[in-house]
Design a protein around this nucleic acid. Structure first.
Lengths: 238, 238
DNA sequence: AACTCATTGTGACGCCGGTCACAAGCCCAC
DNA sequence: GTGGGCTTGTGACCGGCGTCACAATGAGTT
């Protein structure tokens, strides 16, 4: 087993080379070296908060290992989940670029390995490195894309089954493991699924059992099985 | 009256120097020159479609004059408005950076003046111009911010009055003219307001007259008057 | 003025889904 | 094992708002 300390940036890149939006991968090795020199790598347990809504941005974090939940909370405790960040992606880029306070909270869903780069160091790096700036823009563009899709889902869909179907299909394609067949891990509680699609926990439970009854999809433990992809797609594109 | 042809990039910058997120303003004049050489400026009437969802990205557009509606449409014709783009902002940046098809449709709300830069020209410019890349990242970061706020509004709010209050207040601060007092222009139909906050036209009409009854805000013609800002804020932060 | 077309205003109806309340599993610690 | 904490599962209720249908206003044309 690898020790946490051995998981530096470059290694994380080796692990996640499949993901094209990946921030640092593909940059010349010489440039990565510069970042290596200024990064701090550390581990966090499950449930740790990497940063919170409203805090001033301190820097960016590269998620080397684990999954992180990005969410926004309302005054009375309601929450929406913006997205689940997977290993290889960058956290806090918006804050670092804009200087605005974080508008979301990042919380680890499982033990994570994170490399931190201070904002000034990162900005300096960007300024000396045009290619990296473009890469940053690409990452932001991708994040924007995801956010827009969520707006579409929340704003256009007008039934929960529709949104849930969309969510499951999306999870199946962009999900955790690339081996996206009909069977995959979905390590989220019904509550969290509800926060992703903007509905209540009870309704998620009910709609899931409705799906199970109709042989569309079933969630057994943390294993999601998509039984009738076509029917789900019909629901989703309603 | 100015002729359309006289409204080039640099002039547009003069007009909109208040907006800090403004893309090209602040770049060294020498760099702007390079863009001047490859841009095409043209005018569009109200209701013109600059690009549509699903099209391959051809380039970016700088809105010199006018307002543009960015929206997404579902299969059966429902629509969400992502945002209203104002003079000085950039359109199609995400497409240009990512190469992905446009995920939204851009339609002019009034006669507009637009400078177009082909994607290849723009990318070349970015590569030769680190500062501009960072600027692009900043613009994307700002767009992302707006999209996230919309997710928050759609996902967290759980009544239409709440969302409408938030929308009106937001319009008052980020609205068209900087002279944001209690009285401002709101040149959108109830239908469009509904598409911005994810509700039906009828409900917008009803909620607006509810606001009028409670002396919170009134929309007379295209003039919005905020009568009781505090009460609206209470509604919005519910 | 008369006509057309877009927008706004209102009533009635019905249903989806939020909320509350509680039961039933599950997992883990001790 | 037994207990306490999270999840998940269900029933009952009811209110907001989407939808349909149509009237009323306004704005632009001829």
């Amino acid at each position: 087993m690898k020790t946490p300390q051995s998981l530096g940036l470059t290694e994380s890149c080796l692990e996640c080379k499949l993901r094209s939006a990946n921030f640092f991968c593909g940059l010349p090795a010489a440039n990565l070296k510069a970042l290596e020199a200024v990064k701090y790598t550390s581990g966090y347990p499950e449930g740790a908060v990497l940063f919170m809504e409203g805090q001033a941005p301190r820097g960016i974090m590269v998620l080397c290992k684990g999954r992180v939940k990005l969410s926004m909370t309302s005054a009375e405790g309601r929450a929406v989940i913006l997205r689940i960040v997977k290993a290889g992606e960058v956290l806090g880029l918006h804050g670092a670029i804009s200087g605005e306070p974080y508008q979301s909270t990042a919380e680890t869903l499982e033990p994570c390995q994170v490399s931190f780069i201070r904002r000034e160091d990162f900005l300096t790096f960007l300024r000396q490195n045009g290619e990296a700036s473009i890469r940053a823009a690409q990452q932001l563009s991708s994040d924007y894309h995801v956010a827009c899709e969520q707006v579409r889902s929340l704003g256009l869909a007008h039934s929960v089954p529709e949104k849930l179907a969309r969510f499951l299909l999306d999870w199946a394609t962009n999900g955790q493991e690339p081996k996206s067949g009909t069977r995959m891990k979905l390590t989220l509680t019904h509550e969290e699924i509800g926060q992703m699609i903007g509905t209540s926990r009870e309704t998620v439970t009910r709609t899931l059992s409705e799906f199970k009854g109709k042989q569309l999809a079933a969630l057994r433990g943390s294993t999601l099985i998509i039984q009738n992809k076509e029917a789900l797609e019909n629901l989703a594109n309603e």
